[in-house]
Design a protein around this nucleic acid. Structure first.
Length: 550
RNA sequence: GCGCCCAUAGCUCAGCUGGAUAGAGCAACGGACUUCUAAUCCGUAGGUCGUGCGUUCGAAUCGCACUGGGCGUGCCA
């Protein structure tokens, strides 16, 4: 049991003893320390109860404190402060023990079973296979990947999925665009369709085709050539997307193809279900879904008046397919340009009988790429986008991931390449990694001085404020993971790691770790080991390297 | 017009299921390396939390109305 849980339980006991109703779970939520003299853990329960009890909050606080059973090995003292806060101070022995516990838990420290094995699917990036991945995909990849790690760390069964839109009009256009480049390269200037793809990458692909196979496609009929080229371009782009993601350290469990749904007519089955359940109607020759009945602002077309399924219908089938595969919770990460789409998808899934909150969309806001404060010009090569590969090649995987995760997804962000590349104070990624490397260095130094790290036992000489502050911070780790995972806010983790690194650096400066005093050194080395473990576990969740020297 | 996102220190951002004195980093200024990694640390300075009402014991946080910026609002994908 964590000190946090211990205090929560004892407060509940005290409240019951005093005859308060504790059915409201919010009552027992504890506050983390804000300032040094506000305790390590605080509760506002007396303030919350004051109204219904019609008594002054401080009086209630006093009653609770009197009824509270203190476990001296965990709690040093309790005080009432301000209008009625109850502040708990953890005892040094509790913190000393926690350091030992963390080392013992090793890479399992931070794991919990909060998720109760609930099956969750996260779908992210899902960029169209019509061009290279851009920097927005890099942000989505970072966030989605880390969130899956976080969810799995607290007991969910989470999976990564990439949806490949390999069917429909855009793929036809892709084929036509490639064919135009191919013919042009072979001396038959052919315009790329207006709505087609004009990026350099298709010209490169056309050249590759020519050097590999020559002009064999010249003699095909236009329709056949377009069809074959669509498949060639598709395979090529998909392959590149997969390489980009692998290189970035993101391993999708499933690459799900839209064409699969169409081949098996799953969209028609879904359409039928919606029709049978009375959620559709015909108008102007098209089939409409009554999404407005579920909160959407207007109804949406499922089958066009010439009988073609809309993208929306196929997308409904895709999401239905996810649930059929057994996921209880489905979370999509979309760009801000798709937010208008949320209501209709949510409506459709409700119409198909899924609970409203089983489907969730997280909008990841846009990225403005800067260089020394100036907007980066678009690359012609890629066709009006900045390629993810280029960014990662220049900045590096670790820093790129850290920068994207360090900001709330709901916030549009500026990504300055020059700051990201700087190996200096402005770079929080290095700051955390440096703390890890520094600990490793200290530990090496200790071993050179005859300390055997696996034989250290006692933390009883961890008594200074700087050392205990680190221990307190380490204690927060499991809670941070749960909060970050369940609120879909991975930036909480990077923020926590920076804070942890800060406290460690302070501790390092204030106290000599390896000293002539055997027992003091032992205690401090154990704190180093625990800190290293937490930093390593955190960096592992971010899939950022934890260097042993820098 | 309607809907969504955003607005916090000069800059980049935390803090938001209501809590105590709104925090970091960068930039600026001043300090600390003969001592376990100075990619570090310490100190100084920096704020009408976009504006105005409201809810209440208490609001950066919740509600309403404005202002300013971004995005959406297809029988496109």
């Amino acid at each position: 049991m964590t000190p946090h849980q211990h205090i929560q339980n004892r407060i509940a006991q005290a409240l019951v003893k005093l005859g308060f109703d504790i059915s409201d779970e919010k009552l027992l939520i504890l506050e983390k320390r804000k300032l040094e003299n506000f305790g390590d853990i605080a509760t506002t329960v007396a303030l919350s109860l004051a109204k219904s009890a019609q008594r002054p909050p401080r009086e209630i606080a006093q009653q609770i404190v009197d009824a509270f059973e203190i476990e001296p090995s965990i709690i040093e003292r309790i005080e009432i402060a301000g209008p009625g806060f109850i502040n708990f101070y953890l005892s040094p022995s509790c913190l000393q023990q926690s350091v030992i516990d963390i080392i013992r838990s090793a890479e399992q420290y931070g794991r919990s079973n909060k998720g109760d094995n609930k099956r969750v699917q996260l779908e992210f990036v899902s960029a169209n296979p019509t061009g290279p991945l851009n920097i927005v995909s890099a942000r989505a990849a970072s966030v989605g990947d880390v969130l899956v790690n976080l969810l799995n760390m607290c007991g969910y069964q989470a999976q990564r999925e990439f949806y490949v839109n390999d069917a429909g009009r855009q793929i036809e256009l892709l084929g036509e665009s490639l064919a135009a480049q191919y013919l042009t390269e072979l001396g038959q200037p052919t315009p790329i369709p207006q709505e087609g793809y004009h990026g350099e990458y298709l010209r490169e692909l056309a050249r590759m085709l020519i050097s590999a196979e020559g002009d064999v496609y010249l003699h095909l009929s236009t329709a056949e050539r377009n069809r074959q080229f669509a498949q060639k371009a598709l395979l090529y782009m998909l392959n590149r997307h997969q390489q980009t993601m692998e290189h970035f350290g993101v391993h999708f469990d499933v690459w799900f193809k839209e064409s699969r749904l169409r081949e098996t007519n799953e969209h028609l089955a879904v359409l039928q279900r919606l029709e049978i359940s009375g959620h559709t109607y015909e108008q102007d020759g098209a089939i409409w879904f009554k999404s407005s009945a579920f909160g959407d602002e207007k109804d949406r077309v499922l089958l066009t008046n010439d009988g073609r399924p809309t993208y929306f219908l196929v997308d409904i089938a895709y999401h239905e397919n996810k649930f059929e595969r057994g996921f209880e919770q489905v979370i999509d990460f979309w760009g801000p340009d798709h937010h208008g789409y949320i209501a209709r998808m949510s409506a459709a899934l409700q119409a198909l009988g899924h609970p409203k909150d089983a489907f969730q969309v997280c909008i990841i806001q846009q990225v403005n790429l800067l260089r020394n404060g100036q907007p980066v010009k678009m690359s012609k090569r890629a066709g009006e986008i900045i390629e993810m590969d280029e960014l990662v090649a220049e900045v590096g995987v670790d820093v790129t991931r850290f920068f994207f995760i360090d900001r709330r997804t709901s916030q549009p962000m500026d990504f300055d390449i020059e700051i990201a590349k700087k190996q200096s104070d402005d770079n929080p990624s290095y700051y955390v990694q440096y703390a890890h490397a520094r600990i490793c260095s200290v530990l090496r130094h200790a071993e050179e001085h005859g300390f055997h790290l696996d034989q250290l036992k006692s933390t009883q000489f961890l008594t200074e404020a700087a050392a205990l502050a680190v221990a307190k911070k380490l204690l927060d780790f499991p809670e941070v993971i749960i909060k970050a995972a369940e609120s879909l806010e991975p930036h909480r983790l990077t923020g926590y790691l920076v804070e942890t690194a800060t406290l460690y650096h302070k501790f390092y400066h204030e106290l000599q770790i390896v000293t002539d005093e055997q027992s003091i050194t032992e205690s401090r080395l154990l704190l180093c080991l625990a800190t290293r473990q937490v930093l390593a576990n955190g960096l592992q969740l971010l899939r950022i390297s934890a260097p042993t020297r820098m």
